[in-house]
Amino acid sequence: MNVSILAADFFKYAPEIWVGILETLYMVVVSTLFSYIIGLPIGVLLCVTDKDGICPCRVFNVVCGFIVNILRSIPFIILLVAIMPFTRLVVGTTIGSTATIVPLVISAFPFVARMVESSIKEVDSGIIEAAEAMGTPTFKIITKVLIPEAKPSLIVGAAIAITTILGYSTMAGFTGGGGLGAIAINYGYYRDNTLVMVATVVLLVIIVQLFQEIGIRATRKTDKRIK
């Protein structure tokens, strides 16, 4: 095939690609947000109910940890299909970007919970002991000590989570989800348009780099330990 025809083809798809970028950002940002709304409290609970935590509760810790592990073991592409009835129940459809958010959140929040758990565990036990010695109630230890002290690490975790979710979101293209993934599959793969394929991959790489860079900069700016 002639390169100029390919290029013309590519420009023909430019508006779709632009919409794809916006859809991808929409899915990723909203999914990350919901994953954190659910995953952050679970991560904190997993950490504080641990046997060395500030509020040990073995039963809760084991049960919650088990559920998180199960959800984390299911491959995203399987989960995507398996929970379609649930997705329809929540958003009324199983295709498009909004429909993709549901499996993305269900798949990402256990991952986020584990990331949060490990970030919070990094907080020096001496600092927690000092807070306890100053008469801090358990809930305030979480809000005033654990989360603020773990903030830089939580931000790093968020950057990792957002890129992982971005990776997942592209898979949704196979089942009628939106975004760059769908464009890569529909135009690049099914119609065999290499240029569109390459363009979407490059765009995805740029978006990942962007999120990563923002994450690193935000960490550097917040972390008061480095100076």
Partner: peptide, 16 residues
């Protein structure tokens, strides 16, 4: 405990 403060070998200040 607020009437009974404590200081530590490792200082235990909040880093952030």
């Amino acid at each position: 405990r607020q009437s009974m403060s404590m200081i530590f070998q490792g200082f235990n200040l909040m880093e952030q």
